[in-house]
């Protein structure tokens, strides 16, 4: 049985998270949702996901960039940032993160699926 790809969705907006989760699960991915950066870091350290979809503005003390930085300091995990133009500059200023991709809100779910699919295809090859 093929191992199910685990995705971490860090998004504090419930309706958005619910929608993205449902759409990705339809594609066969296993999706876990976190609304704060702290919870996401704790979970990723305990059980690293295969890929992270990270919002930047989050509930809690740390933002998505800091959460991503903490997660990948142990081992690299590809991160797709849901961001705006200004936030992209902000992400780029932290050279340690090297995001897999950026998507802007409102999120085009097909674009996310396409990025994820391409990434894992390349990884398999």
């Amino acid at each position: 049985m093929e191992k199910q790809i685990k995705l971490m969705l860090v998004e504090d907006e419930a309706m958005t998270a619910l929608y993205i989760k449902m759409m990705l699960e339809k594609r066969g991915y296993l999706v876990s949702i976190f609304s704060t950066g702290e919870k996401a870091v704790d979970s990723a350290k305990a059980e690293p996901p295969d890929l992270i979809i990270m919002d930047i503005h989050l509930a809690g003390e740390i933002d998505g960039i800091e959460a991503a930085r903490r997660i990948i300091e142990d081992a690299y995990i590809p991160v797709i940032f849901a961001t705006g133009y200004q936030e992209k500059t902000y992400v780029d200023s932290d050279k340690s993160i090297k995001p897999l991709a950026y998507v802007t809100k409102p999120i085009d779910i097909n674009k996310i699926i396409s990025i994820i699919t391409d990434y894992f295809k390349k990884k398999c090859n």
């Binding site: 907006e13 309706m15 619910l18 929608y19 409102p106």
Partner: peptide, 24 residues
């Protein structure tokens, strides 16, 4: 102003998500 942009964008996202969820 930044918060307004962010909130507007988020709300658009929520509305889009509601419509998408309704469709599903």
């Amino acid at each position: 102003l930044r918060e307004l942009y962010h909130r507007t964008k988020n709300n658009m996202q929520v509305i889009a998500s509601i419509l998408n969820l309704n469709a599903i």
